[in-house]
Structure formats: C-alpha cells, structure tokens
Amino acid sequence: MSGALRVAVDREACCGSGNCVRTAPEVFDQDDADGLVLLRRSEPAPGDWDAVRQAAYNCPAGAIAVAGP
C-alpha cells in the first residue's frame, strides 16, 4: 500500500530560510514570532506532494523529513 505522504519538521534544526514556504505554501508556514517553520498539514494533499518533496530537498538545514510514497 502506498498510503499518504507524511511530513515532519525539526524546528531546532530550522534556519528560517523560508524556502519551504516559497515552494509549498499550503503545507509550510513561518511562525510570526520566531520565523521558524510551522507545519500546516502533516499529511498534505496529493497535489502538493511534488512541492513538498522539492521543499525537503531544497531545505538548507535538512529540517524537513518526508515519508511515504
């Protein structure tokens, strides 16, 4: 079974570059207070999967983990 794509973020590792928010704004946000990553959806819609994978690849700090199909 392929199942859903799951995303996890590591706020300790995050360096606040904002790449993920640019790439997949439906899934990632930056905290108003500290600018660090906030996950809007841990199981993004299939239409956002490519963007989420791209965001994980481009994250300079390696703070985004993606599991699933």
């Binding site: 360096c15 606040g16 904002g18 930056q30 207070a33 500290d34 600018g35 660090l36």
Partner: peptide, 12 residues
C-alpha cells in the same frame, strides 16, 4: 544570532 534575525527577514 540567526534566531534573532530570522523574524526580521521572513517572507511575510
């Protein structure tokens, strides 16, 4: 230092 500046430069 990075954390002190991150909110200043964030996209929003």
């Amino acid at each position: 230092f990075r954390r002190m500046l991150t909110p200043e430069f964030m996209i929003k």
